[in-house]
Design a protein around this nucleic acid. Structure first.
Length: 163
DNA sequence: TAGCGCCCCCTGCTGGG
DNA sequence: CCCAGCAGGGGGCGCTA
């Protein structure tokens, strides 16, 4: 079992296959960094703490995102936000992924329709181009950036700014 | 090689229409 | 109820000691 200390060095255990085994719950991970993340959860090591509201996060990126969204007045204006590259659209997203999803959803509906297949039964969305299935529309749209075909070169050029 | 940071991808939740 | 956007976790890649 782990002691809940933020200064504790993590020790990793491997099984005969060379996979990483969690000594706490026995879960197996192929990669060390995946186990690192998993074990941190056991240790409740939320070392990335927001100085403003004292909320803790597992990952620095999550804290950065939190700072951008909740305390944007405290950070440098040059901090990266992702603006929609399409003309006459003022949409700004906190993450690149969310910006891509917005662009495809709002500006590329025609192209998306060509590869989007919605199942009302299973409430999933499939890509007819590669037959991959997603449980949420966001997942599909994010994936679609790699499968969708553009006839309009200007549109493709604008999208490439954020891809 | 162990340990960890960065970033991409995906998912679940929430709020508004 | 549906859809768009937000927020956060999982995992791959690559760097450093």
């Amino acid at each position: 079992m782990f002691k809940k200390s933020t200064h504790m060095t993590i020790k990793y255990t491997k099984n005969d296959n060379g996979d990483f085994v969690c000594p706490d719950c026995g879960i197996i991970k192929k990669r060390q960094n995946s186990m690192h993340y998993h074990m941190k959860k056991h240790m409740e090591e939320l070392k990335h703490v927001c100085q403003e509201c004292k909320k803790g996060f597992l990952q620095k990126q999550t804290l950065d995102l939190h700072m951008k969204s909740k305390h944007s007045e405290l950070i440098d204006d040059s901090e990266k936000k992702f603006k929609c590259p399409f003309d006459n659209c003022e949409f700004i997203a906190l993450t690149k992924g969310n910006c891509i999803i917005h662009c495809l959803r709002s500006h590329c509906q025609e192209e998306i329709k060509q590869i989007m297949e919605v199942s009302k039964e299973t409430k999933t969305i499939s890509c007819t181009s590669c037959e991959k299935t997603f449980s949420s529309s966001c997942g599909f749209y994010y994936h679609a950036k790699g499968c969708v075909q553009f006839k309009d070169e200007d549109k493709l050029e604008m999208l490439q700014e954020i891809l």
